[in-house]
């Protein structure tokens, strides 16, 4: 690229984003979230393969069959994957960095076949392993959102 006669320092243009979107949950997710407000977790079971899906969705991707059979799921399950996250990243919802460290895990709730990606209370990697029994710790004031479950704690 040909530079001009005057060399300037590389400049930039700041464009701060502050946008809001209105997301429609759809019927299945609405029922699921309404359940959370009563500490009730439900999955959708596929009539084809029998897989019990969380989150709820309209269709089983493997069988390509509609899902409408609700089955109850426990607020406790098995830790299927874990990590302790230590990198402070910007939370796009707040514009602020998320405090670290925090535990993360994939939890297979009793009665479901997929796993939930969620937070763990435990942040000591020495105390975490696949197969641990964990249970949901609920928020005091339930709002009908996935973070009504604050995190999962190891069941002792």
């Amino acid at each position: 690229m040909t530079a001009g006669a005057i060399a300037a320092e590389p400049l930039g243009v700041a464009c701060p984003m502050d946008l809001g979107w209105r997301y429609a949950s759809g019927a299945a997710m609405e029922r699921f979230l309404a359940g959370l407000r009563e500490r009730r977790i439900e999955a959708l079971r596929c009539d084809g393969c029998g897989r019990r899906y969380l989150p709820p969705r309209p269709l089983c991707g493997d069988c390509r069959l509609p899902l409408d059979r609700w089955v109850p799921v426990a607020a406790a399950g098995t830790l299927e994957a874990w990590s302790v996250y230590r990198l402070p990243i910007l939370d796009g919802r707040t514009g602020e960095p998320r405090p670290t460290p925090y535990g993360i895990g994939l939890v297979r709730l009793d009665g479901a076949d997929t796993t939930i990606n969620h937070l763990l209370a435990e942040t000591d990697p020495g105390r975490l392993r696949i197969g641990l029994r964990v249970r949901a710790v609920w928020r005091e004031e339930l709002r009908g959102a996935l973070d009504d479950i604050l995190h999962f704690e190891v069941a002792r």
């Binding site: 997301y23 949950s25 997710m29 979230l33 989150p55 996250y85 990243i89 919802r93 993360i104 990606n117 969620h118 937070l119 959102a145 996935l146 973070d147």
Partner: peptide, 8 residues
């Protein structure tokens, strides 16, 4: 609705 609150 699902994992924005917890995704890393």
């Amino acid at each position: 609705f699902w994992d924005r609150a917890v995704a890393s």
